[in-house]
Design a protein around this nucleic acid. Structure first.
Lengths: 204, 204
DNA sequence: AAATGATGTGAGCGATAGCTCATATTTGTC
DNA sequence: GACAAATATGAGCTATCGCTCACATCATTT
């Protein structure tokens, strides 16, 4: 009986295998959707045997979860460092910078982002997609608290929620379902989303 | 060979069967998610044989699509009549009313709404979820055009997009992932979302 | 070069999915 | 009540899915 061979890459060879599997999972997810993304197809696409797949991932869910983690981490890294950079900046500057970064973050791999959001069922481990929102919420709330002299909102919780949801939703929709808006008038979009948030937060 | 027996309810009996199937689909979708919602389980839950299911729906996709249609139509009906009602009202009044209605619309059947958004893969016929956005966009754009004297935006397309996406996203998130906000401070939320949109649209 | 562990392989197992069809039952018409 | 059309039934077919395991190959250590 195999005790627990899963998920312990040691040599270089195996790390290549794991990387190929993650790449293949992402590609198949984008091309065929979650339902049609069978583990056999993924292994095939990766040029790896089905047996190898199950050496590193206990099941399909874990495989997809790993792809999600990698992708969200990539996006979150951008947002985190942007928030550090603007921590001391006034609201107007900070918001504009963040909106701009959020659009960039969504451009890391739009087809994959779309596939993950629209295709992957949020059950079990796959629920972690929402973790990103919670972290963003906490970071923004901290910023607003530090700058509460500049802003005028009756409730910090509600305000943080509104800012995060609005910016996330708008950048997501723009990149995913309205690429035309981004091509033709990206600067208008950034200006307008910034104005939306700033005029909401600003005193009088 | 059966030519095309699908989807032609005539007698009262059959309409009851179809209704039971739609209800069961919704319930199973909520309880078990899309993947685990097998047609056999749905037929079982509906108290109907699997054969009957396939008399009215050519496949699982069509069944789920019918549930989506019914649900979005129910929500859209509310939004449509609200928009007619506020067509002549000034921005401030109209926005508040619409935000309020949007929250109500999301309360029609939150668990089902959540299941449809989070579980159902957007492929093939199931893409129609997004049709609702397009209609809302058109209606809002028409309103803004009619009231362009009251508002101050550089681009009607972008502004419509922003209003629809922001309000939809905020009400959705509030009802689905932050029921606490709604319980404790529903009025604060309505006030704040209204302020967000109004201060964005308003002249200076 | 022998031994040992790490890694890779793929035929195939059990389970279950979506779906069909021959048959049974109900309803409406005369 | 006889007959046809509409509706309902469910055993079971085919396909495919996720996944295992007995074995081969490669890398490392001695």
């Amino acid at each position: 009986m195999r005790t627990r061979p899963r998920k312990i890459p040691g040599q270089k060879r195996s790390r290549v295998t794991v990387a190929a599997l993650l790449e293949a999972t992402a590609r198949v997810l984008v091309k065929d959707g979650y339902e049609a993304a069978s583990t056999n197809k993924i292994a095939n696409t990766a040029g790896v045997s089905i047996g190898s797949l199950y050496q590193y991932f206990p099941n399909k869910e874990a495989l997809v979860a790993a792809v999600i983690d990698r992708h969200t981490e990539e996006m979150m890294e951008l947002v985190r460092e942007a928030l550090v950079k603007v921590a001391q900046q006034p609201v107007e500057v900070a918001v504009r910078e963040l909106v701009s970064i959020m659009i960039d973050a969504h451009r890391v791999d739009p087809p994959l982002h779309r596939a993950l959001v629209q295709q992957v069922p949020r059950v079990g481990r796959l629920e972690s997609i929402e973790a990103i929102d919670r972290e963003a919420y906490a970071l923004v709330r901290a910023y607003l608290e530090a700058h509460c002299g500049e802003v005028n909102v009756p409730d910090l919780d509600v305000a943080s929620f509104i800012c995060v949801a609005a910016v996330e939703s708008l950048t997501h929709s723009a990149v995913i379902t309205r690429p035309d808006v981004l091509e033709d008038k990206a600067s208008v979009l950034i200006d307008e989303v910034t104005r939306l948030v700033v005029s909401y937060l600003r005193k009088t």
